[in-house]
Design a protein around this nucleic acid. Structure first.
Lengths: 188, 188
DNA sequence: TTGACCCCTTACTGATTAGTAAGTAAGGTG
DNA sequence: CACCTTACTTACTAATCAGTAAGGGGTCAA
């Protein structure tokens, strides 16, 4: 693919890591610049304000989720759920990262309004997708659960998000335990 | 009870609100002082460093949890679980507050080491208690679930924590939905 | 009445923050 | 060759941050 170093992309990668590890208010332009070996003003060149950077990050997450969902369209409900869970286990493997949506929701009142709005969009999108997967899977007897598909989607999202955070205090096994239990509760 | 204004306690209350709404890195001594109508240095008088304040906050949460657990000792497993859930719904009622443990875990890498340690202690304590409640309840046929009690406790904690955060993006119904589903999955 | 203690203020420090402005080196294009 | 654009740098501002030092007013006890 692109051979050039592409500082813009490096900034987004670094900022994404820092967001998931430290929260949006837990890193500065200086921190990013230091990692990349440039000056803070270089980061401002690509993302004039921190809100711009935050919005670009969320847009990037949404694109990735969107692309992933499109690619998974042909798969069975079970495979789609499995893939979804894998996204989160990868976060954990990459050094106890939390889920971006979880972090942004945790410090929701302390992020710019535009970021709140885009965070809402992102979460709602994932929730709709997951509701569909669960209901589709139940129709086809891939899953077994009582109650509303939307409620179950909320639980699955909340559990993965919470377990990823819980892994900080209870250890990484905590996430595997949650996944194990989650599958049991879905009759998988 | 105590008639005197007790600034120390007012600081803790205000800081607790801000922690649960904005995260530990989302408020400053200046913010607290402003709310209380004092100067930032007055906050430093009671809590020399922000780490001191953070540790006092966690200690306060642990005391409250501890006292509550002691009070609930006589109750049935079902009642204890119900009470535990009520703690979280109250957070939600008090203006979309998140769970303190959840917030601290979300920005885990961006809080002082001592606070990380105390956060771990707090979460482990709650986890142990909840494991006990769930296993006790299953023995007495108050709950029905498959798998390890510890795993189930992880799921319950993660779900409540995640759902409280999810309420920011998906609305407050999200929490009730999660609780509804959680109870279904426990055969309640 | 003296003094000591508590709780706060004023006034500061130095670091870090986001953000801006001006300049510059390198690379392509007419 | 002159001329832009891109991608930075240096150098700055103003605000905010955590934290400190010194002092002052009120209360209480000897």
């Amino acid at each position: 693919m692109s051979a050039k170093p592409d500082t813009r992309e490096e900034i987004l990668k670094t900022a994404s890591n820092m967001l998931q590890l430290r929260g949006f208010n837990g890193f500065s332009y200086g921190h990013i610049a230091e990692v990349l070996g440039v000056k803070a003003a270089a980061v401002h060149y690509h993302f004039p304000s921190k809100t711009d950077l935050g919005l670009a990050l969320i847009a990037r997450y949404r694109e990735r989720y969107g692309r992933w969902m499109k690619d998974a369209q042909g798969l069975s409900a079970r495979e789609r759920l499995e893939g979804y869970i894998t996204i989160y286990s990868r976060f954990l493997q990459e050094g106890a990262k939390a889920c971006p949506a979880g972090v942004l929701q945790a410090e929701y009142q302390a992020i710019p309004e535009e970021m709140q709005r885009e965070t809402r969009r992102m979460v709602q999108e994932i929730h709709r997708w997951l509701t569909d997967v669960l209901e589709d899977g139940r129709r086809k007897s891939e899953f077994a659960f009582n109650g509303d598909g939307s409620d179950k989607a909320t639980v699955v999202m909340a559990t993965l998000q919470g377990a990823l955070q819980g892994a900080r205090a209870l250890g990484k096994e905590c996430f595997q335990a949650a996944v194990r239990q989650l599958k049991k509760d879905l009759g998988v």
